Simulated scan of single mutants.
Amino acid sequence: MAQRTVLVVLFDGVQSLDVSGPVEVFAGAEKHTPGTYRIHTASLDGAPVRTTSGLTLVPDRPLAEAPHPHTLLVPGGQGTRRPDPRLVDWVRERGPRAVRLVSVCTGAIVLARAGLLDGRRATTHWAYCDTLARNHPAVEVDPDPVYVRDGPVATSAGVTAGIDLALALVEEDLGRDVALTIARHLVVFLRRPGNQAQFSAQLAAQTARREPLREVQRWITEHPDGDLTVQSLAARARLSPRHFARAFRAETGMTPGRYVDRVRLEHARRLLEDTADGIEEISRASGYGTPEAMRRAFVTALGTAPAEYRRRFRPATTH
């Protein structure tokens, strides 16, 4: 098996966890299966860099002396807001030569400035998706997923999403068993599916200003198996269905139906991850009614059936 070189780009203002998270995953895989990964770090001039948290990272060498990478990883951080033009030029030149080009968090901004995301689907930290889309209209920015794969380019959301993406790459390279071992060691999920939302429904939706609507939001979350039709929810809020639907969307940023769909999906995911309950029982408890209805919802939202989701994404445990 050929050894894969992983090169991590460092710069002042880098987010330390964007670096250490993926590095720990690849280093863990190398310890488990020696000879699979060789990790290098490099900065523009080879000098130490200061992270956003104040930590100092010492690179192995200057970028000009860095080895040709199999996987080139560009982390995020405040230093990506106005990246050094020399860094962008280096990424523009060397990025296309890598077998895999990966960004964590706002590292996608550097890739976009280098023109390497044009015509591709990508994501970044939710707080910067609008900025990325506005400044780089040739990039198809998807603000929802944890990470996005588009050919040889992989972009991930904020901070811990870099760990999810790195685990997915290790699984791709070395198989699920190795990725599972690394996840257990790090005490994390094997990996969250890439198209899982960055936010839960409660975080993705704004909290309504009016108490009746806030109460409806709480009711939905606490009773995913209840009658959550617009008519029933409107009656709970003491509003007409039309007025309720319009007010709910105006104050939360999503329709009642979309909010209910997200809550039910999250509830079912948690039961699949945390319990041994059967699929039929979970489908009823989550408001789907039947396993087939839940299966359709999972395939549409996550690209996988509930049973497969449980097999692949249940949290690893340590002993």
Results as ranks from 00 to 15, higher is better:
residue 179 A to F: 01
residue 180 L to C: 07
residue 181 T to G: 08
residue 181 T to D: 06
residue 181 T to P: 00
residue 182 I to A: 02
residue 183 A to Q: 00
residue 185 H to D: 10
residue 185 H to P: 00
residue 187 V to H: 06
residue 187 V to S: 09
residue 187 V to M: 10
residue 187 V to D: 13
residue 188 V to S: 03
residue 191 R to F: 01
residue 192 R to T: 06
residue 192 R to Y: 05
residue 193 P to F: 03
residue 193 P to R: 03
residue 193 P to Q: 03
residue 196 Q to L: 15
residue 196 Q to A: 15
residue 197 A to C: 09
residue 199 F to I: 05
residue 199 F to P: 00
residue 200 S to W: 06
residue 200 S to R: 12
residue 201 A to P: 02
residue 202 Q to G: 08
residue 202 Q to R: 14
residue 205 A to I: 05
residue 206 Q to V: 08
residue 206 Q to Y: 10
residue 206 Q to R: 15
residue 207 T to E: 13
residue 208 A to E: 06
residue 210 R to G: 07
residue 212 P to S: 13
residue 212 P to N: 12
residue 213 L to M: 08
residue 213 L to Q: 05
residue 214 R to Q: 15
residue 214 R to V: 11
residue 214 R to I: 09
residue 216 V to E: 01
residue 217 Q to N: 10
residue 218 R to I: 11
residue 219 W to Q: 13
residue 219 W to D: 14
residue 224 P to N: 12
residue 226 G to Y: 01
residue 228 L to G: 01
residue 231 Q to F: 07
residue 232 S to Q: 15
residue 234 A to H: 06
residue 234 A to T: 13
residue 235 A to Q: 14
residue 236 R to F: 04
residue 236 R to A: 04
residue 236 R to V: 03
residue 237 A to K: 03
residue 237 A to E: 03
residue 237 A to D: 05
residue 237 A to L: 09
residue 237 A to P: 03
residue 240 S to E: 12
residue 240 S to R: 12
residue 240 S to L: 10
residue 241 P to W: 04
residue 241 P to C: 07
residue 241 P to T: 09
residue 242 R to Y: 10
residue 243 H to C: 06
residue 244 F to C: 13
residue 244 F to Y: 15
residue 244 F to D: 02
residue 246 R to H: 08
residue 246 R to M: 07
residue 249 R to M: 12
residue 251 E to T: 10
residue 253 G to P: 03
residue 253 G to T: 10
residue 253 G to C: 13
residue 255 T to E: 13
residue 255 T to M: 10
residue 255 T to D: 05
residue 256 P to R: 03
residue 256 P to V: 11
residue 258 R to H: 13
residue 258 R to W: 06
residue 258 R to A: 15
residue 259 Y to V: 06
residue 259 Y to D: 02
residue 260 V to E: 00
residue 261 D to S: 14
residue 261 D to C: 06
residue 262 R to K: 12
residue 262 R to D: 09
residue 262 R to N: 10
residue 263 V to G: 05
residue 264 R to C: 08
residue 265 L to G: 02
residue 267 H to Q: 10
residue 268 A to R: 01
residue 270 R to S: 11
residue 270 R to F: 08
residue 271 L to A: 13
residue 271 L to E: 06
